[in-house]
């Protein structure tokens, strides 16, 4: 470094270690508690002494709760959302960046504006729309009563997506941050690429398939992983969109492990559940840390 900064380095090191402790301590407590049995826990209350009951707790989670099923649901929904968001964003970003013509700015703005208002804010009406996706069709058909004049009655179509994978996934996809990231990324690519493609006689779809996709593989995967994790940790939407225990996601299931208060909650069991629910995305993060960081740092430029 520039000057003799040992004292600063020491302070920075202390800060980092304090930060590590703050981040890791809750996780460590979760793991330790998960190894204790309910009886141990009742007898000793909070204790940092590991027990030997981890397997027992896992077995109980596996056989007596819906968490395994819900974890599977999380995998499926997160995969759908990640693929969907990246796929949709890829198509839109491609259309916005590589084509001439009017309306591109508007499309881009329509996608980016959705970043500002999270789904959590409009949960009530998003729920209503998901309960009947045909709502806008009905509204248009019944506007001014032309449908009734034509057929003798108002149009009343029903298409309920609640309690289905589509119903949980689609609203989570209605968010344009991936589009923003990919548009920014495509704009940094040299324009010669596409020009060369035109000279070679390649159409826009071939250019997308043969040149752009291979070129964007890295950012797309990073984005996909990031979106997968983002979908996995969703709580409010799956909570309302899928009410039956077998159809909801793991995070919701974990929060519902809390019993209705007839006895002291089985915290060791809850913490075991927390491990199960957290481990898959945690492994992804730990493994793909560099890629995710690059993907994210991309988003900010």
């Amino acid at each position: 470094m520039i000057e003799n900064t040992r004292s600063i380095d020491r302070a920075a090191g202390a800060v980092l270690i304090a930060g590590l402790a703050f981040v890791l301590a809750p996780l460590a407590i979760v793991v330790v508690t998960a190894t204790q049995s309910y009886e141990d826990f009742l007898a000793r209350n909070f204790s940092l002494v590991p027990g030997t009951h981890l397997i027992g707790n896992l077995r109980e989670i596996w056989t007596r709760t819906d968490l395994p099923r819900q974890t599977l649901n999380s995998v499926i929904v997160a995969a759908i959302v990640a693929t969907g968001r990246v796929g949709l964003a890829l198509c839109t970003a491609y259309a916005v960046v590589f084509f001439t013509g009017r309306g591109r700015g508007l499309v881009y703005a329509a996608a980016v504006a959705s970043i500002m208002l999270p789904l959590e804010l409009m949960i009530i009406t998003a729920y209503q729309v998901t309960a009947n996706v045909a709502l806008p069709v009905n509204a248009v058909a019944n506007m001014g009563g032309w449908w009734a004049a034509l057929t003798g009655g108002p149009l009343d179509l029903h298409w309920n997506l609640l309690d289905s994978y589509a119903g949980i996934s689609l609203p989570l996809m209605a968010q344009g941050s991936a589009t923003l990231i990919l548009v920014q990324f495509f704009r940094t690519l040299p324009p010669q690429l596409a020009r060369a493609a035109i000279i070679d006689g390649a159409g826009p779809l071939r250019f997308l398939r043969d040149i752009l996709l291979p070129l964007s593989k890295g950012p797309l995967t990073a984005l996909g992983i990031y979106m997968f994790i983002g979908a996995w940790v969703q709580y409010m939407w799956p909570l309302v969109a899928a009410s039956s225990p077998a159809r909801t996601m793991a995070v919701v299931g974990l929060a519902r492990l809390q019993e209705d208060g007839e006895r002291i909650p089985d915290f060791p069991l809850q913490m075991t559940g927390a491990i199960l629910v957290t481990l898959p995305p945690l492994i992804l993060i730990a493994l793909f840390q560099r890629r995710i960081v690059r993907g994210l740092a991309l988003s900010e430029k």
Partner: peptide
């Protein structure tokens, strides 16, 4: 630290609430 500080991203706010 650069790796570990990302870990909370994998933990849902509801999960860390329970914890």
């Amino acid at each position: 630290a650069r790796n570990v500080f990302l870990w909370p991203k994998a933990v849902a706010s509801a999960s860390i609430g329970v914890v």
